[in-house]
Write a protein that binds this DNA or RNA. Structure first.
Lengths: 125, 125
DNA sequence: CCGAATCCAAGAGGATACTG
DNA sequence: CAGTATCCTCTTGGATTCGG
């Protein structure tokens, strides 16, 4: 399990920002959550969505999200097995936050791209 | 420099969420940014704010944020040296996002705390 | 005061193979 | 189908020391 970064979140300024990032900022968690906003997804469905993501890591990220109360893991006792992941209430509350991150991420990419073009032009001269 | 996690952010669903998290999700960046919302801060001011944060790491996080166009680094040619960090326009745009993260972080901590109490009560019985 | 340089430990992510 | 189990690499964060 991912270690707690601090003993507790004590109300210090900005510490809840940290708590939030702790829960959602691992390499794949953001995108996983984003995809779950659509509705529940099966394990293999997620796996196919991110071909570069190994099965082991996907499992771990999902378990951590479950441990943080952000997603639910529902096992259907069938053969072959079926496991469905969905957002908890807490997870649903993330929607506006994720959208806000998405908006800003877009701007961020645009700015980076622009400055890259500028520096390339500078090289040309 | 922190490696790009993907070759490019190509508009794939949720990828801008990832771009945003890439830029702000390192261990201390969230809180650093949060503190800069107040206004510019000197290096040592930030250092004192986070006593557990080593100088080396603080420097690196600040440089990465600068590289991503989120903060400005202004050096005053004085003795002793003075360096001030402030948000760029892009950084200022983060404000609602950080507040959203903070809101959700608070809820997250509450939920975790509650479930911890519940499980402790279960142990008592 | 604001770093850079060096060295270190831990862990996160990943490739691959196996299983109920 | 949905995972474990190993093993490996590379990145991160951190302590410490030195420098302009």
């Amino acid at each position: 399990m991912r270690p707690m970064r601090h003993v507790s979140y004590d109300g210090t300024k900005g510490c809840y920002v940290e708590a939030a990032l702790d829960a959602i900022s691992d390499k794949w968690k953001g995108v996983i959550l984003y995809h779950l906003l659509d509705g529940p997804k099966r394990f293999n469905q997620l796996k196919r969505t991110f071909p570069e993501l190994s099965q082991r890591i996907l499992t771990r990220q999902l378990r951590e999200l479950e441990g943080d109360g952000v997603i639910n893991r529902k096992v259907y006792p069938e053969i072959p097995p079926k496991v469905e992941y969905s957002l908890t209430d807490l997870g649903e509350l993330l929607k506006p936050t994720l959208e806000s991150l998405e908006d800003w991420g877009l701007k961020c990419v645009e700015v980076t791209k622009r400055s890259k073009i500028v520096s390339e032009k500078a090289v040309e001269q």
